[in-house]
Structure formats: structure tokens, C-alpha cells
């Protein structure tokens, strides 16, 4: 009998989790992104011309829901993490497309405006060969967004804004499993790229 009961409990919890998961999706899709506490406009930094970026990713609400649904069967951990995100913005620009001094100034200004908007600085490294800023937006003890600037003058500038319930550790762990060159070439070969006017590479 205990067996049956624990199975019943598991099933009920499963149903509940499923309904919470889908309702979370719906709630996430409704809110205008700019009003989300975890949103920070990387584009407003005015630092990066997306045309010069090697990576220009801008994913939001409804599309992230579809991504979550599409990986649900094969990659449930990824689906769970994606379901907590409301938007993903990533810009990666080769350093040789940028003027180091300008980057320095603009990142400093960006960091200041994040702090002014109530973001918590988690990491700040400003050295000749590397500049790293990591900011978190917490609301009621819950992380609602994360913004990263990573600049290596000899390599590239990476700007990231993750909006939503960001599980830093899990996102990094899952992200490690993905190979950047493989994904980039898959994206280059992707037929969906042709009708998309936003040519990313």
C-alpha cells in the first residue's frame, strides 16, 4: 500500500510540476521585456555594432518557450533552465573590431549605470589584459537577471544579458557541454538563416 501511495504522490507532484512549468511559461511571455528587473539593454551601450559581431543572439519569450518545448524530450535539464529565462541577449565581437580605449570607457559607464539601477556587482576585474564585470539583479532574494561584460583586448568582447530566474551554476555547467565552433557552423549552415535579414556572421 505504501508503494502505491508513494507512486500516487510522485504522480501528483509530477502533474503539479508540469502545470507550474507551463504556467511559468505563459507568465514569462506576457511581460514586456524592458520592464523586467533583470533586463539590461546591451545595445544601448552603443559599443557594439551587431554587424561587426561574430555572435548576435536575441531570443525572447515565445521563441524561448518553443526552444524549451523542442528540447523537452531529449534535454530536459536544458528545457528546465530555458523555461526560467525570459530573454537571452549575447553579443560577441572580435577585439580587432573595437578600439580598446573606447571599450574601457563604455564598459565603465555600463557598469555605473547597472549599479545605479540597483544591480549587484559580483565580480570586477580591470587589468591591462582583461576586463570582467559581472552583475546580478536580485529581487526578494531571487536572482532575476545577470549581465556580464568580458573583454580581452587580445581576443574578443563578450556581452551577455540573461533575463529571468538565472541559475548561474547550472547554466554554466550545461553551457560547457556545448561546443562553440560546432554550433557556429551549424548556424552558418542553417537554412532558416536565409530568410532572416539579420545576417549574423
Amino acid at each position: 500500500m505504501r508503494d502505491v501511495r508513494s507512486r500516487q504522490r510522485r504522480i501528483v507532484i509530477g502533474v503539479l510540476a508540469l502545470s507550474l512549468w507551463t504556467s511559468g511559461f505563459a507568465a514569462a511571455a506576457e511581460q514586456p521585456i524592458e520592464s523586467h528587473p533583470g533586463y539590461f539593454s546591451l545595445d544601448d551601450l552603443g559599443l557594439v555594432d551587431p554587424a561587426l559581431s561574430s555572435v548576435d543572439i536575441n531570443l525572447r519569450g515565445a521563441m524561448l518557450r518553443l526552444v524549451g518545448a523542442s528540447v523537452l524530450q531529449e534535454e530536459p535539464s536544458l528545457a528546465a533552465l530555458v523555461s526560467d529565462l525570459v530573454a537571452i541577449r549575447v553579443l560577441v565581437t572580435p577585439a580587432n573590431e573595437l578600439r580598446a580605449q573606447q571599450v574601457d570607457t563604455v564598459l565603465g559607464r555600463g557598469a555605473a549605470s547597472l549599479e545605479k539601477a540597483g544591480w549587484q556587482r559580483v565580480v570586477k576585474v580591470r587589468e591591462a589584459d582583461e576586463q570582467v564585470h559581472v552583475y546580478l539583479k536580485e529581487v526578494d532574494g531571487q536572482i532575476e537577471g545577470m549581465t556580464l561584460f568580458v573583454y580581452e583586448p587580445s581576443d574578443e568582447l563578450t556581452l551577455i544579458n540573461l533575463v529571468g530566474r538565472v541559475d548561474v551554476e547550472q547554466l554554466a555547467a550545461i553551457g560547457q557541454a556545448f561546443d562553440i565552433p560546432t554550433l557556429e557552423s551549424a548556424l552558418d549552415a542553417d537554412p532558416a538563416k536565409t530568410p532572416d535579414p539579420d545576417d549574423r556572421r
Binding site: 543572439i57 526552444v67 536544458l78 530555458v82 560547457q176 554550433l183
Partner: peptide
């Protein structure tokens, strides 16, 4: 989906 993975790869 590819872009999401690429974004997470860069995040990592």
C-alpha cells in the same frame, strides 16, 4: 535552439 545553446556556451 542552436542559438540558445551557443548563448549558453558563451556564458559558460
Amino acid at each position: 535552439t542552436l542559438e540558445t545553446k551557443l548563448a549558453l556556451a558563451h556564458f559558460a
